[in-house]
Computed example of a mutant assay.
Amino acid sequence: MPHLSVYTSRGGRIFPYARRFEGALVLVLFTLTACASRHIVDGVLVDEARGFRIGVLRDGWRRLDAEGAELAFQAEPGGQVAALFISCEERRPITLRMLAKRLFFGISSKRVVTQTVTSLNGAEAVHTVLTGRLQEADVMVSSYVTRGSECVYDLVYVASPEAFQNRLQEFERFVQGWALTEQGSESR
């Protein structure tokens, strides 16, 4: 299996999403900064400063600290990756569709399978499923891009096309567990 990396651009920074390591997709390790306004209660991560809550994946998912990711997991076995990325620096008014398009920088031969506008617990989101090539390997991606009053939230699932369906339902539950808190939804 070739070396895999997915890149996005948010606020001028480039974040690696996933890379091959000994035959499986693994996120690039990074130390996640903990802060007092961030805590996990009954399997739900609540970040008051960034205005969101989301359930953590368990049972067959290993938590990873990954560059640029607020929360990231790798499926074991299978190597699928699920992650939440947040950018709070964006001050220009950019549509969700444009933000979704920027999410896939670094993937070649992209083919959008579906792209729809949906709601994630009351917040408008763009859901995209696409296929593409990443450094000579085929990948399939499901992503949700949404925003609150101050931040943009990217929920991303990356897998080989053959393994994509295997953990997709678990990723969808992860996405459905995401919600803005009062802090994140103010002046939306």
Results as ranks from 00 to 15, higher is better:
Q115V: 04
L32G: 06
G122Q: 13
F30I: 05
E90P: 08
Q115L: 13
K101R: 13
D59V: 10
C151P: 05
E70L: 11
L84N: 02
C35G: 14
F30E: 10
G78W: 01
Q80H: 08
C151F: 01
F105S: 11
F85N: 01
E48H: 07
T118Q: 12
A49M: 08
Q80G: 06
Q115R: 15
D138F: 01
V28D: 12
Y153W: 11
F30C: 10
T31H: 12
V117M: 07
V117H: 04
D154S: 15
G79E: 05
D59R: 08
V81G: 04
R97K: 10
Y153C: 06
R38P: 09
V81R: 03
V156E: 01
E67F: 08
E67G: 06
L120P: 04
G106V: 01
Y144I: 07
L134G: 09
I94T: 15
V152T: 07
L103A: 09
V56T: 13
E76V: 10
G79F: 03
Q80S: 09
A36R: 13
F85P: 04
E48R: 14
E150Y: 05
S119T: 14
G132C: 01
I107P: 00
S109P: 01
P77S: 14
L134M: 13
M140Q: 13
T146M: 10
N121I: 15
K101W: 14
R91E: 05
S149P: 04
T118N: 06
E89K: 14
L84C: 03
A83L: 05
L27F: 05
R50E: 11
A123G: 05
G51Y: 02
D59L: 09
G78Y: 00
S143D: 08
S160H: 06
E136T: 06
S160W: 03
A69S: 10
I107V: 15
R62L: 08
A137G: 14
D65E: 10
V126M: 02
S160L: 14
V28P: 11
I94W: 06
T95F: 04
R133I: 10
P161H: 10
E162W: 04
C151M: 12
I40R: 15
S143V: 02
Q115C: 10
L96W: 04
A100I: 14
A72P: 02
K101P: 01
G132F: 03
V41K: 14
I107Y: 00
F104K: 01
V113P: 02
R53H: 09
P77I: 12
M98N: 12
G43L: 12
V112L: 04
V141S: 03
G60V: 06
L71C: 09
D59T: 07
E150K: 15
E89N: 11
R147E: 13
V44T: 13
V112I: 14
R133W: 03
V139S: 02
L84H: 02
M140V: 13
D138Y: 00
A36F: 06
T114N: 04
V46G: 03
A159P: 04
T131Y: 00
A82F: 02
G43F: 09
D138E: 12
D47Q: 05
G60E: 10
R147P: 03
